[in-house]
Design a protein around this nucleic acid. Structure first.
Length: 347
DNA sequence: ATGCATGAGCC
DNA sequence: GCTCATGCATA
């Protein structure tokens, strides 16, 4: 049910692997699957294994799982256990410690679009994402359009750096709760799971307060112009907020989202301070609605004279107690409408 | 919010 | 073939 990404193997934290428990693929696989929400498959999974191996794998799984739960440094497990893990004991995502380079985020952006369901937050977004207003392609410039190739290249570079620290196989973990500066001079910081968790929570609350959707955030990231950081999908923002990303991914994303949040709130403060500046351009116009009776009158007039003179319009406006411009525009729209109707009728 | 897919780098 | 970050599509 939730975060268990079938693909994301939840790798055990290196530190948890004691030498004698050689993390064989089979065993970790077993553990992983055991955590999958598809118990029905479990039986088959080991069908070919010999009893002993199976038992051993299960035993190991139990041990490791317990270890995870209680191990204060276990990053992945932490999120869920601390938050709202329902039934799973294992974590959805990975974990081995990699160097987290912010660039890890560089998105992939397929030529896709962002969640259509989510609306854009006009003002704020416009300021944070200047491009979006331009044909709604902001994101695209930076992300979508570039799509695979370019992006892929980018990602590669990033991942490259990440993996360079043979961290995958080695055992250095990111979260040095405090003193664990595992990385020799690494500098990367304090991947304190709790901090991440609370940040994610605060992030969501503040985002909502700003009236910005997850998709908006993802798209707006590109406007931060942080080197190596493009936009992200709604999915990713959602996963960040729900802590369903890998620890490393969370760590990498945090500073970026933090930057966005600050910028967004700064812009909002600005708007509060001097709203005038933001008015003209993006102020929503009010749409007049003409009541039925008036509309009927207008239609009657239109039937007689689709192109009334200025004087005639003024007279009609006065009679119906509408603004002259409203009446004028109504006639314009009516003529257009009629044209469209004619067109669709013939074609 | 999340199941499934893709693609890069690694082994 | 595997891990991982990320996205698309959809419930």
């Amino acid at each position: 049910m939730m975060s268990m990404n079938s693909k994301q193997p939840f790798s055990m934290h290196p530190i948890l692997h004691e030498p004698k428990y050689t993390p064989l693929h089979s065993s970790s696989e077993a553990i992983r699957r055991a955590c999958l929400p598809t118990p029905s498959l479990q039986g088959n999974i080991f069908a070919g294994f010999d009893e002993t191996l199976l038992q051993r794998a299960e035993a190991l799984a139990a041990v490791d799982i317990v270890a995870q739960k209680s191990h204060p440094f276990k990053p992945d497990a932490t999120y869920h256990t601390m938050t709202s893990m329902t039934s799973m004991t294992c974590t959805p995502t990975s974990s081995s410690a990699h160097l987290h380079h912010p660039s890890v985020l560089t998105s992939h952006h397929h030529p896709g679009h962002h969640q259509p369901a989510q609306g854009l937050e006009g003002d704020l977004l416009d300021h944070l994402t200047p491009g979006i207003s331009l044909g709604g392609m902001t994101g695209s410039d930076v992300c979508s359009t570039a799509s695979h190739t370019a992006h892929a290249a980018h990602m590669s570079a990033i991942n490259h750096m990440q993996h360079h620290h043979h961290s995958q196989s080695m055992n250095m973990h990111p979260h040095g709760l405090g003193s664990h500066a595992s990385l020799g001079g690494g500098g990367d910081a304090e991947p304190d799971p709790r901090e991440l968790e609370s940040f994610a929570e605060r992030f969501k609350q503040r985002r909502i307060k700003l009236g910005v959707t997850q998709a908006d955030v993802g798209a707006a990231l590109a406007n931060l112009k942080i080197p190596g950081v493009g936009c992200l999908s709604q999915s990713t923002i959602c996963r960040f907020e729900s802590l369903t990303l890998s620890h490393n991914n969370m760590v990498a994303l945090k500073p970026i989202l933090e930057a966005w949040l600050e910028e967004a709130e700064r812009v909002q403060r600005e708007k509060m301070a001097k709203p005038e500046i933001f008015n003209g351009a993006d102020k929503k116009r009010k749409r007049t609605s003409i009541a039925a009776p008036e509309k009927r009158s207008l239609e009657a007039y239109f039937a007689v004279q689709p192109r009334p003179s200025s004087e005639k319009i003024a007279a009609i406006a006065e009679k119906l107690d509408l603004k002259k411009n409203v009446v004028r525009v109504w006639f314009c729209n009516q003529r257009q409408k009629q044209k469209r109707m004619k067109f669709s009728a013939t074609h």
